[in-house]
Design a protein around this nucleic acid. Structure first.
Lengths: 198, 198
DNA sequence: ATAATAGTTGACTGATTAGTCAATAAGAGT
DNA sequence: ACTCTTATTGACTAATCAGTCAACTATTAT
């Protein structure tokens, strides 16, 4: 039941927003009663943090596979971008909207008001950046890109990607996500003569 | 009074969020009563659209100056990024938080639920991109960058910039915004030997 | 002055909000 | 059978929410 509650919460907040997702609605979707909710979580804020952590745990194995060191570093990004694109396109078929990244949507919404959720978003954000950072370092070592500061480059690319996901959400246009692959090459500084800018 | 209401609404929604900004709170900050609010606006949604348009009108002359064709194209971006950085840093001194861009925050929050506000955000978003597009086209014409599709490049850079602003809001860190200048050079594909990637 | 218009007021509604709580049920270990 | 812990229930606040409305007051044009 705890899992049903976090699943329901993330679904609703991802599709709509943190603010418009009421505890009642979460309970209804999870098939739980209010009392059960507050047996497991002491507040909506705490549930949200738990829901984000649960989503991370569900996706971690997938991320590990996509960013496996056995994959050539620049291909890892392509696989990841493809994966997110496909998943968001599938969700769009179900709910009619490109939903973007819940970390950014929820994080941006509550950052000035809920330090608990804000810190959770930041923590998961940093974990995900580690995948980027490692791939960038490997690409640099192989001479594919010039990235003397892989951590900064990873943060920059991650921010650019999330900006694109947010734009795709606002414009409800999945193509913006597909086009990001080319932008990523620019940000990464890929040394490839026949991959010119858009 | 109409202006006081839109000002109050934008301030509160920018600092907090659309969802947590109540009509009562807007009225209180504007020094108006509920009845006045609904005399000018038929809903909170309509007020929000009006507030965003009003903000655009206040900033337009400024944007025109920053992106004046008399300024070398790539410098326009630097001036703009500096301007936003300075303004957000100043706001941070007043309210304690880096607030990012209200277009993205509000747009991302309401996009799946309020088509009126969503369309307004998209409209203003497109207007702002025009400044980028024109600067990119000029830079391309001067051989400073390679951008065969200025419109796509402008959209990409705009999305990357807003991703950075969102990250700065979530992490409450103004330095991320300062660092964007270098990322922008990569995205733009500036042909400058001594401007290597970060 | 008068009448029409534009703006303002405060009390009101009905719905929804997050969160509480005592009572109940289910399961497991003894 | 008994008990302790874990989980579930539904009715309950007290506050807040967006939005309404008839009455009231400026302002302005004639």
């Amino acid at each position: 039941m705890k899992e049903r509650l976090t699943d329901a919460a993330l679904d609703l907040m991802w599709e709509n927003s943190y603010g418009t997702t009421s505890v009642d609605a979460i309970c209804e979707r999870a098939g739980a009663k209010k009392g059960s909710f507050y047996y497991f979580f002491k507040s909506k804020s705490e549930l949200t943090a738990a829901a984000l952590e649960a989503e991370w745990n569900k996706n971690k194995a997938n991320m590990d596979a996509l960013f496996s060191p056995t994959v050539p570093p620049l291909e890892r990004f392509d696989h990841y971008f493809d994966y997110v694109h496909d998943r968001l396109a599938e969700l769009q078929k179900a709910c009619g909207s490109i939903l973007g990244c819940p970390l950014l949507s929820i994080g941006s919404e509550v950052s000035t008001q809920d330090q608990g959720v804000r810190a959770t978003v930041e923590r998961i954000w940093d974990r995900k950046i580690k995948y980027f950072e490692s791939a960038i370092r490997d690409a640099h070592a192989q001479g594919l890109i010039a990235a003397p500061d892989p951590e900064a480059k990873a943060r920059a690319l991650f921010a650019c990607y999330h900006g694109t996901l947010a734009q795709a959400r606002i414009q409800n246009d999945v193509e913006l996500i597909r086009d990001f692959k080319l932008v990523a090459r620019d940000v990464l500084g890929v040394k490839d003569a026949h991959a010119v800018s858009s």
